[in-house]
C-alpha cells in the first residue's frame, strides 16, 4: 500500500546512519538515570547542593555562571537554600560596582540580586590566563551540548521525551579522560578525552577522589562529582524545569479531558446531520 515506499526509504537511511556514527569514531555518551528526567522528573535538592559545592570548589576557579543570580539559589525547584544561606554564600564573592562619587570603580561583597561573578572579567583576560583557551560560561551548558542520535533513535527519543543529551554528555566528558591511544599525537596543552569532539580538550581532568567533602555521606568519587555537578548545571540551565513539568501535567490532563468533551459534542452534533437529509 502507500506506506510501503515510505518504509523502504526509511530502512535504507537507517542503515546508512548507524554506519556513519561509528565511522566518525566519536562514541556516544552513556545515558544516565537522572531524577529530573521524564514527565514526573524533579531535582534532588541534596544533589543540587552538592553540585553547587563542586562548582564553588572546583569549576568556579575557571568557569563563570553569569546568568545565574544568587537569589536563584533560594527559588523553588532549585537547591533550596534559605535566603540567609544564599546571602552568606553571596557575601563570600566580590563584585565590581561603581563608579562611586569619586568616579572610581570599587569592589564590594555580592548581594542576592547579583549574578555569580565570573573568575575573569572578560573573554580576553580568560584567554590570556589559559594560553588562548576559553573556559565556557556554564550557565546554559547543559542545553548547549548534545549529540546526534541517528534514525530511528530520534523518533523514539521524541516519545521518551529525551532532553538529557546535554547532561549525559557533560557527565561523560568530565570522567572520560583516558590515555591517548598509541600512535595519536595530542596538541600541546590538551588532554585526551573520549567524548570531546576531536578528542583533544584544553581542560585538564577536574576531579580526584575526596577532593570535595560531602557532608551527607554521599561517596566522594569523581563519578559522583560528575553526576552532581551535571545535575546542578541542568538546574542552572533550566531553573523552572519542575514547574514546567508540573504545569505540563495539568495542561495535558486538561487537554485530554477537553478533547474528550469536544469529541462527544461533535459526535452528538453530527448525529443530527446523519439522521436527516
Amino acid at each position: 500500500m502507500r506506506i510501503l515506499p515510505l518504509l523502504a526509504v526509511a530502512s535504507v537511511l537507517a542503515g546508512a546512519h548507524a554506519v556513519l556514527a561509528a565511522e566518525e569514531g566519536q562514541p556516544l555518551p552513556p545515558r544516565q538515570a537522572w531524577t529530573f528526567a521524564g514527565p514526573f522528573g524533579k531535582f534532588d535538592r541534596g544533589q543540587l547542593q552538592r553540585g553547587f559545592k563542586v562548582y564553588r570548589e572546583v569549576c568556579g576557579a575557571c568557569h563563570g555562571m553569569k546568568l545565574v543570580p544568587f537569589r536563584a539559589l533560594t527559588e523553588p525547584g532549585g537547591p533550596g537554600f534559605t535566603e540567609a544561606q544564599a546571602r552568606t554564600i553571596a557575601g563570600e564573592y566580590r563584585v565590581t560596582d561603581g563608579p562611586n562619587d569619586r568616579g572610581e570603580m570599587f569592589e564590594r561583597p555580592a548581594r542576592l540580586s547579583d549574578a555569580i561573578p565570573s573568575p575573569d572579567p572578560n573573554e580576553q583576560a580568560a584567554r590570556a590566563r589559559f594560553d588562548g583557551a576559553l573556559p565556557p560560561d556554564l550557565s546554559v551548558i547543559a542545553k548547549a551540548r548534545g549529540y546526534e542520535v541517528g534514525f530511528p533513535g530520534f523518533i523514539f527519543d521524541a516519545f521518551k521525551q529525551y532532553q538529557e543529551a546535554g547532561v549525559d554528555y557533560v557527565a561523560a566528558y568530565l570522567t572520560g579522560y583516558e590515555n591517548a591511544p598509541a600512535g595519536t599525537t595530542l596538541a600541546e596543552g590538551t588532554f585526551w578525552s573520549k567524548y570531546f569532539p576531536g578528542h583533544g580538550t584544553a581542560m585538564p581532568p577536574p576531579f580526584q577522589a575526596g577532593q570535595v567533602e560531602y557532608t551527607d555521606g554521599t561517596p566522594a568519587t569523581p563519578e559522583q562529582y560528575a553526576r552532581d555537578i551535571s545535575a546542578f548545571l541542568m538546574w542552572a540551565a533550566e531553573p523552572h524545569l519542575e514547574a514546567r513539568k508540573r504545569i505540563g501535567l495539568q495542561v495535558m490532563v486538561f487537554l485530554v479531558i477537553f478533547a474528550g468533551l469536544l469529541y462527544l459534542t461533535k459526535k452528538k452534533i453530527w448525529s443530527r446531520a446523519n439522521n436527516h437529509a
Binding site: 486538561f254 479531558i257 477537553f258 468533551l261 469536544l262 462527544l264 459534542t265 452528538k268
Partner: peptide, 10 residues
C-alpha cells in the same frame, strides 16, 4: 444539554 454546558465551561 449537560454535554454542551460542560464543554463550554471547560
Amino acid at each position: 444539554d449537560f454535554l454542551y454546558i460542560a464543554t463550554a465551561t471547560v
